[in-house]
Design a protein around this nucleic acid. Sequence first.
DNA 1: TTTGTATTTAGCTAAATATCAAAATAGAGT
DNA 2: ACTCTATTTTGATATTTAGCTAAATACAAA
Lengths: 98, 98
Amino acid sequence: MSLVFKALSDPTRRRVLEMLRERPMSAGDLAAAFPVSKPTMSAHFAVLREAGLIASEKQAQSVIYHLQMSVLEEAMLGFAQAFGWQLQPAAKPESSTD
Amino acid sequence: MSLVFKALSDPTRRRVLEMLRERPMSAGDLAAAFPVSKPTMSAHFAVLREAGLIASEKQAQSVIYHLQMSVLEEAMLGFAQAFGWQLQPAAKPESSTD
DNA sequence: TTTGTATTTAGCTAAATATCAAAATAGAGT
DNA sequence: ACTCTATTTTGATATTTAGCTAAATACAAA
């Protein structure tokens, strides 16, 4: 749980999670969306991975990251419970179905 | 929001919040519940205070801390919303009414 | 005003974190 | 076997963090 909150304490990493909520994305595509170097982004991915919040699969040269929604949910549920809140998990977002 | 998650990333600080959910407590009483020095606890209180999660009032020699539930709620609501969850806030816990 | 109790600040160390540029690795394609 | 592209690792530096002891502050009480 500490690892999850630590991971969430950085705005870049929170934004990465939000982006991955829409769809899986490659490390490069994610990195391109932020004003920091690719090695720095790689380190952020590592923090998220170690917290269990994202997972990766290799696809040709690329590394595709995807959100592990269940881990995020469990951490939030666990915490919410300690404060007597109820959290109802969500439907997946529509990937701009226009 | 980053400050809140940063504050929550330490188990001692999370436990402090849980204890303050039951009732306001003095710095000393809180400190006595953890196996670290009082200055260390004071630093934890400062982190929680800067995140807005607790507030203090002076009472004679003591400093009484209390939870700012609304700040915690708002941070959680904000985050939950970004992931499409619903969070319903809670009743205050019974302070062992036996 | 001296003493005692409660809490914080100061000053320190060790470990962790965030960032970068440069080098290394992994795969595909030529 | 090269060469390109994508990503991570390495090595360096700066900052932050968690912890400690000792000193300072705040207030009450004697």
